[in-house]
């Protein structure tokens, strides 16, 4: 393993007691309440699952926590600082990274430069950024693809590059939006392994959005369930799986 977690993150004020918090976060779109007074606290070195039927508001909550969507009410805190009105790049530079459901790689750029973009924007020189990108690609098993244009990668690799890009410069928290969607069981095992390694290698807290219950149950210590923007259940995988409200929400949508 080439990535050393003991160095921690370079973000100012980083410490292991740092938390990323949503406090009564509400997001409304013209009448539709996509996220409805949601509270959650993400700690470093934990893996929190965020599940719920399609349209439950999971992506919107991640948008609100990363500066892409200003909450209509409530706020998001990083440590003692309210970050919900700050810009996405500021939030990324201060240690909260994310991936996208759609991958969103820089398609015209080589795979390595996709990661270098994040590294240079967080303060590295181009040379250091390149070495850092190669380290991350090595870690995630794509070092041999470094020189390929990102646009030609299959989507399984695309997701992994997205994760590597989010991990550039060791963020304190990383929010993964459906990294295993559409993957086979074997590919899911691979993603599960990657997600489990993130807190160990990088020391960061992980919020994992995923539909595949096997992945969620396999890697998460805690789970938060949303339905129609509201929290309907929280707890360990075993508790949530047995919760009749959760079962009903999922059956109701099938």
């Amino acid at each position: 393993m080439t990535v050393d977690a003991s160095q921690g993150t370079n973000a100012p004020g980083a410490d292991n007691g740092m938390v990323l918090e949503a406090r009564d976060v509400t997001v409304r779109f013209e009448g539709l309440t996509a996220v409805d007074s949601v509270n959650e606290t993400l700690h470093r070195r934990e893996i929190l699952g965020l599940i719920g039927p399609n349209g439950a508001g999971k992506t919107t909550l991640v948008n609100a926590m990363t500066g892409f969507q200003r909450p209509t009410a409530g706020h998001v805190r990083l440590g003692s600082r309210v970050i919900s009105s700050l810009t996405p790049h500021w939030i990324r530079r201060h240690g909260v990274a994310r991936t996208f459901q759609a991958g969103r790689l820089f398609r015209d750029m080589p795979v390595s430069e996709n990661i270098e973009v994040a590294a240079v924007s967080l303060g590295m020189s181009r040379k250091k950024a390149h070495a850092h990108a190669m380290e991350l690609l090595e870690w995630i098993g794509l070092a041999d693809r470094a020189a390929l244009p990102a646009g030609i990668l299959p989507y399984t690799d695309e997701r992994r590059v997205g994760i590597a890009r989010a991990l550039a410069q060791k963020p304190q928290f990383v929010l993964l939006d459906e990294p295993a969607a559409g993957m086979s069981d074997l590919e899911c095992d691979d993603i599960m392994h990657v997600v489990r390694e993130i807190p160990k290698q990088f020391g960061c807290g992980v919020l994992l959005i995923e539909h595949n219950m096997r992945v969620i149950m396999g890697v998460c210590e805690r789970i938060h369930v949303l339905d129609s923007g509201k929290t309907i259940s929280r707890g360990t995988p075993a508790e949530v799986q047995k919760d009749p409200v959760v079962i009903k929400a999922y059956l109701g949508h099938e």
Binding site: T66, H89, R165
Partner: peptide, 26 residues
């Protein structure tokens, strides 16, 4: 073009949202 600023700017040309999420001050 080959500087870190050129690289960051080109990333926003490819995908502005992803550039912001990567810490680029577009």
């Amino acid at each position: 073009t080959r500087s870190k600023w050129g690289l960051a700017l080109r990333s926003s040309r490819d995908d502005e949202v992803a550039a912001k999420a990567s810490g680029v001050n577009v």
